[in-house]
Design a protein around this nucleic acid. Structure first.
Lengths: 167, 167
DNA sequence: TTAAACTTTCAGTAATTATTGAAAGTTTAA
DNA sequence: TTAAACTTTCAATAATTACTGAAAGTTTAA
């Protein structure tokens, strides 16, 4: 496999993975492109490489910056903006964990807590609702605590921890 | 909050969470409904409760069965089929982990391995592509090994493991 | 200032994904 | 058998989501 083919395969696969995980294709592909690019890229270059419009590029770069995994860079003496991705895989994992926890897990935990704490009126339905949402609450909060730990720790903590269990 | 309100809130929240994670709303909501239902439900009952069509109900129940988290049950002397969800939260987590690993992580690992192993032609671009896809490969395979462990273990392993890190 | 070089926004449109509902298929009791 | 009771399929349609491109906005150098 040649460079170009391999790169395109990676970008395309990353796009597909993203869409399975609720991240739009363009956003995932821009990230993939920057992830493997040795130099920061301009909007023009990204548009050109991925064959997407200026608007689409601009909006998705912004989202990647909101997620904290893409940065704006300027080259001395140039007006144009360039974009580069966070290159450290641990840091990438930390940021993604942090954002998904904040945006998705935390709000669900809140609902699970509320629902599992409704008054017990003694019916089977209510008992089951309380029991089942409480058990999901436990699972989700355990997982979320783990993510919080991960987010708070230094870079290598995650891999170190995983290694204990994998080896 | 009353029973009905709490239940609807849970079902709706589960639907939203699903769509953030690439699972369609109807599928997530049917799962939520069965998860908190003390008794198995018929297709009619599910349609009625969630206000969705027969076809939609049927197709999504089938997917839930493919995922291994919903079962068909028959009541003695009745022709109609009833459906019940796996009620154990650990088992639910195991099944979801198993399916997502199989459907999404494994194929991505395959691509990452291929791409990171292309010939090094000495250019910066190729070096960066190899380096960055290799580091993703490491992360993803570490995580996947963890999932495999989880999938293979007895029910409590997951929580036990997590507890070590959370406490 | 101003105008060139660039970025962002957003209404309109395209593409994708989910849903319906009726027809086809299946099972079972009589 | 057969026909009633049920389930599944799938073409048509609706709903959602993503994308485009031109206009508006911003920044900077002269």
């Amino acid at each position: 496999m040649e460079y170009k083919e391999a790169k395109d395969k990676f970008i395309s696969t990353w796009g597909v993975l993203g869409s399975h995980w609720g991240i739009n294709k363009a956003m995932a592909q821009i990230h993939a492109l920057l992830w493997v690019s040795p130099e920061p890229l301009s909007v023009e270059e990204i548009m050109e490489e991925l064959k997407i419009s200026r608007g689409n590029t601009s909006m998705n770069i912004r989202q990647l910056m909101d997620w904290g995994i893409v940065y704006k860079e300027t080259k001395a003496g140039e007006r144009k903006e360039y974009f580069a991705s966070e290159k450290d895989v641990q840091e990438l994992a930390r940021q993604v964990a942090k954002e998904r926890s904040r945006r998705e897990i935390k709000p669900v935990l809140k609902v699970l807590k509320e629902v599992s704490n409704i008054d017990n009126d003694g019916t089977d339905e209510t008992k089951e609702l309380k029991k089942q949402t409480a058990s999901l609450y436990e699972l989700a909060s355990t997982m979320d605590s783990m993510l919080d730990k991960l987010i708070a720790q230094e870079k290598n903590w995650f891999t170190k921890m995983l290694m204990k269990f994998v080896k």
